[in-house]
């Protein structure tokens, strides 16, 4: 396993686009140290900021105070990248394979434009998690994102395909303009979930204030959801039997778009009474 240890926090954000396990796997330690990173608007080398140890392979570990390090794991296609702490913006952006595990929190725009693989955030995530790159219509197009903490606003904005699960609360406008795919929020949803969504599924485990452009269908047990929630539990999220086996109210929307999207809300014990 190759380990990169950040010596000290950079004064301005450091962009590490391309520092991924699959890119580094065939490199010698000297070659890794010579790879280009951007410190603000100045070209620099990996070795200028990171101590490199171990042998490159399928696993890469990055250590240190990485809150100002952007694009960690961006574009990775295979292998496993472990970030031992918090990570900056654009972590896992555009990744298409492999597994990226962040032991802490991630900044905004994590996994934007993701196409495959899995991002696991053991802390919280910022805004625009799994959303679209600025100016693009479609966001995440495949893969899985698991956040053990909370997530900021516009989770899965423009989501096209894939699964985003947030164990905590997802901020306002989750699933904004989403095209398909699935968002699961175990700890509640902020305002205006699914605004302008065309298709896809947003799952909430507690009461949600919906836009008036969503219409109620019925309360039932969605068979497909059992598959999703069981998988999320297998991946370590705290799903209860009641959530997996429970009944969900199905709301269709957004009525200003196709009304082919849905928001599923777990039937609460209060509504059962």
């Amino acid at each position: 396993m190759l380990t990169l240890t950040l010596r000290e926090q950079p004064t301005v954000p450091l962009e590490t686009d391309g520092v991924t396990p699959d890119r580094l796997a065939p490199c010698s330690r000297d070659e890794v140290e010579a790879l280009t990173v951007w410190h603000g608007n100045r070209r620099a080398k990996v070795g200028d900021f990171f101590a490199v140890s171990g042998q490159a392979g399928e696993e890469l570990r990055v250590e240190g105070d990485l809150r100002r390090v952007k694009f960690l794991g961006a574009g990775m296609t295979a292998g496993r990248l472990t970030i031992a702490g918090d990570a900056g913006m654009h972590t896992g952006a555009g990744m298409s394979g492999g597994e990226l595990v962040v032991a802490g929190a991630v900044g905004d725009f994590a996994a934007v434009g993701m196409r495959g693989g899995r991002l696991v955030v053991e802390g919280s995530a910022g805004h625009h998690l799994g959303a679209a790159h600025q100016g693009e219509r479609a966001g995440m197009r495949g893969g899985e994102i698991l956040v053990h903490g909370d997530a900021g606003e516009q989770v899965g904005a423009g989501l096209r395909r894939g699964l985003i699960a947030v164990a905590g609360r997802a901020g306002a406008a989750a699933g904004l303009r989403m095209l398909a795919g699935t968002i699961v929020a175990l700890g509640g949803l902020g305002a205006r979930p699914g605004a302008a969504m065309r298709r896809g599924t947003i799952v909430a485990m507690s009461e949600v204030t919906l836009l008036p452009t969503f219409a109620f269908n019925c309360t039932y047990r969605p068979q497909f959801l059992r598959l999703y929630l069981r998988r999320l539990r297998a991946l370590g999220l705290p799903l209860t039997d009641q959530q997996i086996e429970g009944r969900y109210a199905r709301w269709s929307g957004d009525g200003l778009e196709l009304r082919r999207g849905e928001i599923l809300i777990l039937e609460s014990e209060r509504s059962l009474a």
Binding site: G142, R161, G162, L163, T182, T201, Y220, R221, P222, Q223, F224, L227, Y228, R231
Partner: peptide, 17 residues
């Protein structure tokens, strides 16, 4: 729905899905 690389179809029926 696509989960873990497998596609499933949800067909609405009178009972539910």
């Amino acid at each position: 729905k696509v989960l873990d690389g497998r596609r499933y179809w949800r067909v609405p029926v009178m009972e539910g899905e």
